[in-house]
Each structure stands twice: as C-alpha cells, then as structure tokens.
Design a protein around this nucleic acid. Sequence first.
DNA 1: CAGTGGTCTAGACCACTGC
DNA 2: CAGTGGTCTAGACCACTGA
Lengths: 239, 239
Amino acid sequence: MSDHRLPIYQRLHDEIAANIASQVWRPGQPIPPESEIASTHSIAIGTVRKAIDALVAEGLVERRQGRGTFVRRPRFEDSLSRFFRYALPDGQTVPASRLLERELVATAPRHVTDALCLGSGETAIRINRLRVANGTPFLREQIWLPHTKFAPLLTAPEREIGDLLYPAYERLCGQLVARAEEVITIGTADEDDARVLSVERGAAVVVIDRLALDYSGTPLEWRRSRGIASEFRYKVEIY
Amino acid sequence: MSDHRLPIYQRLHDEIAANIASQVWRPGQPIPPESEIASTHSIAIGTVRKAIDALVAEGLVERRQGRGTFVRRPRFEDSLSRFFRYALPDGQTVPASRLLERELVATAPRHVTDALCLGSGETAIRINRLRVANGTPFLREQIWLPHTKFAPLLTAPEREIGDLLYPAYERLCGQLVARAEEVITIGTADEDDARVLSVERGAAVVVIDRLALDYSGTPLEWRRSRGIASEFRYKVEIY
DNA sequence: CAGTGGTCTAGACCACTGC
DNA sequence: CAGTGGTCTAGACCACTGA
C-alpha cells in the first residue's frame, strides 16, 4: 500500500482517503473519532489530527465540533452556470435543465475516448442538454459517459434524473464525482448555437470543456458546454 | 490589537502577518526561528508551528528545512499572459512589454476612483501598455495608479521599468503587490483594439479587469486588459 | 558542527453537541 | 451527562542546511 518510508500522518491520510475513494466511508457519514483512530493505530492523537487537517484542507472531510468528522459531499454541480451572469442574480433563480437527447454511441469521437480512457469498441452514452434560466436558454451541453458505469441513465425516466446530473449519477449509478478540470476557450456560434441560444451565427461563444473524475482519479464524464459569451463573467483571486 | 479571546495561534498568526504587511519583515528575509518565537512569547513551539502552518497555507511565508522560514516574494506578474496561448509555448518566449503612454490624470473615471478608493481631487497615473509575444501584440493594457504612491513611475526612464511592472513598483516606489482580484468578461473589439491587435472591428475580445492589493488590503493598481479572444485559454480545477 | 524546520508523543483542559 | 473536536503544553528525536 502506502510506502512506509513516508511519515505516519501521510500514510494515515492516504489510508483515510482510500476509504473515502472506495466508498467504504460514504459522503455524509462520520469517520471514526480521532481518539479511536489513535488507539487502533497505536499513534498519538496529534498525529491523527495532522492527517485529518490535510484531508480538511483538501475538502474530503469536514469537522463539526462536538459531533465528529464527516465525509464531505461534493457540491459543485452549479460551477458551470456560476460562470454566467444569468445564474447569479443572488442565486435566486435556480437554473433548470432540459434533456434533449440520450443516445448510445458505438464509436465516440477520438477526443472523448481519450479523455475517458475508453477501450476501442467500448460504447458511450451521449446526452444533449440545455441549461435554462428564467425561461431563456443560455448554455448547451454535450455530455459523454462510459456506458458500462452509467447504463441506468439511458433508461431512467427524465423526472428521476432531475435538474442536477451529479446527484443523479450517484443515485442511479453509484458514481461519485469528486473533482473536475475545466478548460475555457472562446469560439464562434455555429448554426445550432445560433438557433438554440438565440444569437447570430458567428457570434462569440464560450466553450467550456470539463473532465469530471471520481475520488481515485478515474475519469467519469466528459462534457463540452457552449454558452453566450456576452453573459460570461468569471472572477479569479490570485495570491 | 488582536482580540485576546482568540486562540493564541490566531493572535500569533495575525501578529506575524502584520509584520509582513507593514514590511517590518521584508520579502526574501527570514522570520525569527520557531524556537525563538516560542520562547519570546512564552508559548509552546507546537503553537508557533500551527500559526506558521496557516501563513504557509496562505502563501505569505515559505519554509525551507534546515534554513528557516522566509517571507515569500509574490510572483504573479505573468498571471495575465498565462491566460493566453501566445504566452505558453513551453514558457520559452518571455512576453515583452511596450509602454505607449504615461500620463498624469486629474480626474480619473468613476470606476477607477472607486476601485482605488481615491478621494475627489486626487490625481492618478494612467499607463497604456502593450504585451507582445514573438513580435505580435496580443494584449492591450490600461493601468491606473494613485499618484501619491507611484510618482516615481511617471519620470523613470523606460528601461528602468522593464518588462514587468510589479517588480518596478517595488524597486521604484516601495509598493508591494500581495494579491489581486480579476474579473474576466467578453466584449467586442473597438477601433483601437482592431488596429493594435490586428483583428476585425467587432471581433470578440477578452476583457480582464484586475484590482491589485498590498498585504494590508489597500488597493494599489487597477488595470483593464483587452486581448484577442481566439487566443484565450484558461484552465480551472474544481474541488 | 550548531541551528533550523519536520515528525511524533502523551498527556491536559476547554467548548460544543446531543441525549 | 458522555463523547466529540479545539487548543495547548513540554518535551523527544530526525533530516536537512551551511559554515
């Protein structure tokens, strides 16, 4: 397992992280108390705290004084729409989603199979989806999933999926998205963009490519979102 | 000073941060050893370490085993051009800068005086600047500074300023940029953009508004940068 | 070599939560 | 009330750095 030339707190950190990654300890549930971990591992409680400190900093667990330490439930479904002004008026308007298409695809495009590490011949699910705020579509999403892990999503009735996909992944397929990488670029509207988003053909659109991964770093989902550039707004803090 | 209902490590953290903010301890210099801080404050070394741990996490100081703990020199001058593909070909090409204009302005626009917290009647320096990579201009920058703090920048010969502004701020004006906030939006090229950046009028441009602050949170610089949208590329990690 | 930060221990007491 | 995490102590020994 973990190289035992590493410090104790590192090894403990990795051990706990592995338990979360493998869903032995599930989101929302408490991990064992610090005192218990210390005694079962025969280490000092200060060492346990250092391991947990790191997990807190990484956002894997959450401390609640007097109650315990709990596995965190990742909550970043709206990180995409957070880029857009539409979604932000005090967060009051919850952006809705409209599923347009769900298809089984025998041979996904090269960039998708690469991103998802699909073997040749492995089938994929493609979902086309529209994000809507205040009745106005502002984001087109194309989502690719490995069929093997997400088969239930093809057949589930639309209302069981709901507005947010990641909770649906967990509920219907047992797949947990832990983190994601996004690349933002700017392109121009094609015919479909123009029609669906109500902009002129050739107008600027923001293109956001996202790769979502589970706790162990295995890619779960690749999606490309296209949104109205004039509504795009992103804030960064630099240190 | 610091509320003494706060934990000791918090108060110590604030005290050290204040020493850095006021430049009592300057970038690149070591802070006192942990053992010394512990004895002069009559607290345990573990408590000192906890305070310093937080400062490390915030990026204010840097530990070097066997040597000491040092005030960090902020290094994010190139965070802007990092958004653009031009600047990235293996980081080999150092993007150059060309100063176009330096002017004293009696009444800066409202959004500038607001951002920089300038009193009415306070003068400001406006700098127009061009970022160039491989001989091609890719970013127009307009920079606003409070005259009181940055007067030397108006008269300094251009070669003393160099390609990077923040080191020049420190060298010539004693002002240290500690962090910045940026808002990225997308607009269209006006006549000047079109001419200088060699794009069509009306083409998409990325607009990056940045407010740079010193350690104590006082605004030092406001700048608006306009770049070619098709060259824009930004990567985010979400947890 | 002396001096620094890095790891670890084995306690203590406090503050908070839920029963 | 018992049980949890939060703060703090006073040591120990190790690993690394530079003179």
